[in-house]
């Protein structure tokens, strides 16, 4: 059983089914991104975990305890909002200490914790503690909101598009800071975003959602290089899709745009590689491979064939492997790749 188990979650608003049979096991300390266009149900999933929406069916279990009947304030789940949502009438220190007061943390300990949290986000108590939210920049406000959510030591941290309201520079910096803090505290985190670059750069695993359905769950590398559905392929990265028919999965032959490849053996064909149907351990640098992935803004669709399912050895829970922290290069340099062996190179 995973640390946070989301099972067959369903949610409808009126006749509109927003979340359809959503299942996701999450390990302790994992950083999960829910990625998808607006209206895909990602925020609704997050709000159901937080307790602001009640699912019509399904369960959310945290260490085996069912969260659904609990009210939001009983769940010990921290949340950061897009609009910061700092309490305008409280100072920075009071904002960060808000959750501690309610939790009955003794005052001296609460003060230490507030100082600790403000240090963590780089806004020292001595300088910023007495300021009001309106005296801070957007990036600073969102940092305070992060510190406020982390101060009561929640079991899970939810981030609801926390970077969307910030300008581009701050967004990139804060994004890596969030990841850094998350790793340092080892807190299980769910991050909702519509920005693929954000999701690809900070997640352990990404859930690509569309129309209330989890289209694909996988590491950023898997999502980017082996999209499982046409939607994932078109939503993540930029590519030119074309219809193709798999002729021989073993030889990696496809017929595209009415053209069939000649019948030479696949192994001998230049530019075409044999697919290895066996899953291999991840992060194995001993296996040679070619950087088959194109730049998103690059020339063509080589390297990613939507609709062709590739065997994925590890979806869902599994041991924590350092390789999963590897961030996917936006444009990988040619060289030893990890997963390239089952790439299909286009004609």
């Amino acid at each position: 059983m995973a640390y946070l188990d989301i099972l067959n979650l369903e949610k409808s608003f009126g006749a509109h089914r927003v979340v359809k049979d959503f299942t996701l096991p999450i390990d302790r300390g994992e950083f999960i991104s829910l990625l998808g266009p607006s209206g895909c149900g990602k925020t609704t999933v997050l709000r159901m975990i937080a307790g602001f929406e009640t699912p019509n069916a399904g369960s959310i279990r945290l260490e085996g305890r069912d969260l659904v009947p609990l009210r939001p304030n009983q769940r010990q789940i921290g949340m950061v909002f897009q609009a910061y949502a700092l309490f305008p009438n409280l100072t920075v220190a009071q904002n960060v200490g808000f959750g501690l007061r309610g939790a009955g943390v003794p005052r001296p300990e609460a003060q230490t914790r507030v100082a600790e949290m403000l240090d963590l986000i780089g806004l020292p108590l001595s300088e910023y503690g007495d300021r009001y939210p309106f005296q801070l920049s957007g990036g600073q406000q969102q940092r305070v909101a992060l510190a406020r959510a982390l101060a009561p030591r929640p079991q899970v941290l939810l981030l609801d598009e926390p970077l969307s309201a910030l300008d581009a520079k701050v967004r990139v910096r804060l994004r890596s800071e969030i990841r850094e803090i998350q790793r340092r505290l080892g807190i299980t985190t769910i991050f909702v975003t519509h920005d693929q670059e954000e999701a690809l750069s900070i997640s352990d695993r990404i859930v690509v959602m569309n129309g209330g359905i989890a289209e694909q769950v996988g590491t950023p590398f898997e999502i980017y290089n082996h999209p499982a559905t046409p939607f994932v392929a078109s939503f993540v990265g930029t590519l030119t899709p074309f219809d193709a028919r798999v002729l021989d999965p073993g030889a990696g032959q496809v017929a595209a745009a009415g053209q069939t490849p000649d019948a030479r053996p696949a192994a001998a064909a230049p530019g075409r590689r044999q697919r290895d149907p066996r899953p291999a351990p991840r992060g194995d640098p001993a296996r040679p491979g070619r950087g088959a992935r194109d730049c998103p803004a690059g020339h063509g669709p080589r390297g990613r064939v939507p609709g062709v399912r590739h065997p994925h050895p590890r979806r869902g829970a599994g041991p924590h492997h350092p390789a999963r922290h590897l961030q996917p290069p936006r444009c990988p340099a040619p060289g030893p790749g990890r997963d390239d062996r089952d790439q299909l190179l286009g004609p």
Partner: peptide, 25 residues
């Protein structure tokens, strides 16, 4: 709405929300 949800996620009940967040604002 957002302030209420923020306070709830920090463990505050309705009384605390009204007294410490809504009323002062």
């Amino acid at each position: 709405t957002t302030l209420t949800e923020a306070a709830q996620s920090l463990g505050a009940g309705w009384g605390t929300i009204l007294w410490r967040i809504i009323l002062p604002n």
